[in-house]
């Protein structure tokens, strides 16, 4: 077994998925962490990667590698995996992660499994499908096992290691794509939606006023999510949308406020451990999946809940 982990990072600062994937990969023995970025990114990330027990760190660095969201990283990664005889690649199930995984699968003629919530030592992937109504175990049968893993699937466990970073300059074949402008999503002070232990979401029922949703979220240290109705109306950025065409979240607690619970919304939150909803309409479909539902006006229920929790917490 030769397991490789694709380390997700922003300018050399690793994201939470890196620790999660390294934790999963360690079950299979030796782990090689691969970070792809511009010169210097590997050195910046080394200490953080070493806190999760990597046996080897390889940094693929090139000043042009970010000129395409996925194609250039995939070229370099595929070449490395073939050269090193990798048997498994774990990569986070993000928009970009899946694109890179898809490309690496074609380039290395390997099978791909997406959205795994767990991976065993023999690279059997567990997937939770159809909104959590079935659990599937699958295996790649040809080539390298390319598996994308959903963020927040396991608890990252630290384990110190002390590898040096081996820096590689890849041979890249430029694409015809030109990126003329980048507007990075504004990061607020709140946790990342897919990484958060608690998510409080607002829908059309907020009528554009997310203040009570945010107040509870901040008290609970939660991320803020939104339904498509809310993002379409421009009340909240698209990057906060939960559901089929937004993010899939699986927190310990999901609180849906003024959200009807359309199938496309449920597709993104139904595997949350505990689901709570506040909705005026007792017939709202969201109540079919809630552990605790309050039929009522969110503008009355949320502030009361927030102050009761604040009072209890002291």
């Amino acid at each position: 077994m030769s397991t490789f982990v694709f380390i997700d990072h922003i300018d050399g600062v690793i994201t939470k998925t890196a620790g999660e994937l390294l934790t999963i990969a360690r079950r299979a023995g030796e782990v090689t962490a691969v970070i792809v970025g511009i010169p210097g990114d590997g050195a910046k990330a080394a200490a953080a990667i070493n806190s999760f027990g990597a046996n080897k760190i390889i940094a693929i660095e090139d000043s042009t590698i970010n000129d395409h969201p996925s194609a250039l990283a995939a070229q370099a990664l595929a070449d490395l995996l073939l050269e090193k005889g990798a048997t498994t690649l774990l990569i986070p199930s993000t928009a970009r992660g899946k694109e890179i995984a898809a490309r690496v699968a074609v380039r290395t003629n390997s099978g791909i499994i997406t959205d795994a919530v767990d991976v065993t030592a023999d690279s059997t992937a567990t997937q939770s499908i159809f909104g959590g109504s079935a659990v599937v175990h699958s295996k790649v049968s040809k080539g390298i096992a390319i598996i994308t893993v959903r963020p927040n699937s396991v608890e990252p466990e630290s384990q110190p290691s002390t590898c040096e970073v081996e820096v590689i300059s890849p041979k890249l074949n430029p694409t015809k794509v030109v990126i003329s402008n980048r507007e990075p999503a504004k990061k607020g002070g709140r946790p990342e939606l897919t990484e958060a232990a608690i998510v409080v979401s607002g829908g059309r029922g907020t009528n554009g006023d997310f203040a009570p949703v945010e107040a509870l979220a901040d008290l609970l240290g939660a991320a803020v999510g939104a339904s498509r109705a809310a993002t379409d109306a421009g009340w909240y950025p698209h990057s906060h949308q939960v559901g089929q065409t937004g993010k899939t979240v699986s927190p310990s607690l999901y609180i849906a406020c003024g959200i009807s619970g359309a199938i496309q919304h449920r597709a993104g939150m139904q595997t949350s451990k505990v689901i709570v909803a506040i909705n005026k309409d007792p017939e709202a479909p969201i109540f079919e999946v809630t552990d605790f539902g309050v039929v009522g006006d969110l503008f009355a229920v949320l502030p009361q809940a927030t102050s009761a929790i604040a009072a209890r917490k002291g």
Partner: peptide, 9 residues
């Protein structure tokens, strides 16, 4: 989620 990029090909 990473943001909005303008791209062409």
């Amino acid at each position: 989620d990473e943001g909005v990029d303008s791209m062409s090909a």
